[in-house]
């Protein structure tokens, strides 16, 4: 039973690592784009938020897996 908790922790930890990297790179590029072209700020922000939700979803898949492991 203890292994399941360790597995859940590792799953959510690795997912958070990947998601953090992904969102970090995405936000950096978006800010780059806004700095180059401040008049495109609104459209860049909208597409950034949409892309962030896609990346976030991957961490949430790991959350679901972790919950399945931890509440078995």
């Amino acid at each position: 039973m203890g292994e399941a908790y360790i597995g859940a922790g590792i799953a959510i930890g690795l997912a958070a690592l990947g998601t953090g990297l992904g969102v970090g790179i995405l936000a950096a590029k978006a800010m780059d784009g806004i700095a180059r072209q401040p008049e495109a700020q609104n459209s860049i922000r909208t597409s950034m938020i949409i892309a962030i939700t896609f990346i976030e979803a991957i961490a949430l898949y790991a959350l679901v897996i972790g919950l399945i492991l931890a509440t078995k």
Binding site: T53, E56, A57, L60, Y61, L63, V64
Partner: peptide, 13 residues
């Protein structure tokens, strides 16, 4: 699968 789990997991989280 991805469509349903995305919505479910976001609200659940």
């Amino acid at each position: 699968f991805s469509l349903s789990i995305r919505l479910f997991a976001n609200i659940f989280a």
